[in-house]
Amino acid sequence: MSEARVHLSRSARDAYNALDAFSKTVKELAGDAGIDARLKEIVQIHASQLNGCAYCVRIHVDRAVDAGLDADTIAQIATWRDSGVFTERERAALELTESFTFIHEDGIPDDVYNHVGGILSEKEYVALSWLLVSINAFNRITIAGRYPVPPRSQ
């Protein structure tokens, strides 16, 4: 691996603190919308996988275990389309995760918006959307800075 890079969260602490505060607001919004810890962690793991953010995958896998997800469920997040372990609601959230993570390709396509909107309430859709904006921002910070993967917390 190449030399260390600028650590954005340390180099512009006010900006990072604002993002951290935003993240806390988004998590409260998700909780108020009925998005449980299991679903929050599933989508954050998947966005982090898709972005290639090993740092965030580690953080959210540990949080997923704390939220009660087992190893089999966590392992199947990457292959959710072929897995039978996710509910219809979780599958809709994973589909939305992919659209938000690759938003530069097609935006949120009408078929995804309509399918997900037929499963999730508007309040859930909005909360998950903001949660995905947040995790994608954190992924970009840690990837750009090549943050080392933290040690296992468990």
Score class of each variant (00 low, 15 high):
Asp111Cys: 12
Gln154Tyr: 02
Ala144Glu: 07
Arg58Phe: 03
Tyr125Gly: 05
Asp20Ile: 09
Thr79Arg: 02
Leu120Ser: 00
Asp111Ser: 02
Leu39His: 01
Pro109Ala: 15
Lys40Leu: 15
His7Gln: 10
Asp106Pro: 02
Leu120His: 08
Ala37Trp: 00
Ala75Gly: 07
Arg89Lys: 08
Ile141Thr: 13
Tyr16Thr: 01
Leu120Val: 05
Tyr55Leu: 11
Arg89Asn: 02
Ile42Trp: 00
Gly34Phe: 15
Asp106Glu: 08
Gly52Ser: 08
Gly31Arg: 15
Glu41Cys: 13
Ser83Val: 10
Val85Lys: 00
Phe102Met: 11
Lys40Thr: 11
Ala47Met: 08
Ile45Ala: 09
Gly31Phe: 10
Arg5Met: 04
Val116Tyr: 01
Asn139Arg: 06
Arg58Trp: 07
Glu41Asp: 12
Cys53His: 04
Asp62Gly: 14
Ala78Met: 04
Ala37Gln: 07
Ala137Ile: 06
Thr73Phe: 12
Tyr16Trp: 12
Val43Ile: 10
Pro150Leu: 15
Arg10Tyr: 03
Phe138Met: 03
Gly84Leu: 14
Tyr147Val: 09
Asp32Leu: 12
Ser48Cys: 08
Gly107Leu: 12
Lys27Met: 11
Gly34Glu: 01
Phe86Ser: 05
Leu69Phe: 11
Ser9His: 14
Ser11Gly: 14
Asp66Lys: 13
Leu19Asp: 04
Arg152Asn: 14
Phe102Asp: 10
Glu95Ser: 08
Asp82Pro: 03
Val57Asp: 07
Phe22Val: 02
Tyr55Val: 15
Ala54Asn: 01
His104Trp: 11
Glu122Cys: 06
Glu98Asn: 04
Val6Gly: 05
Gly52Lys: 03
Val112Leu: 12
Arg38Lys: 01
Ala67Met: 04
Val57Pro: 15
Tyr113Glu: 02
His7Lys: 15
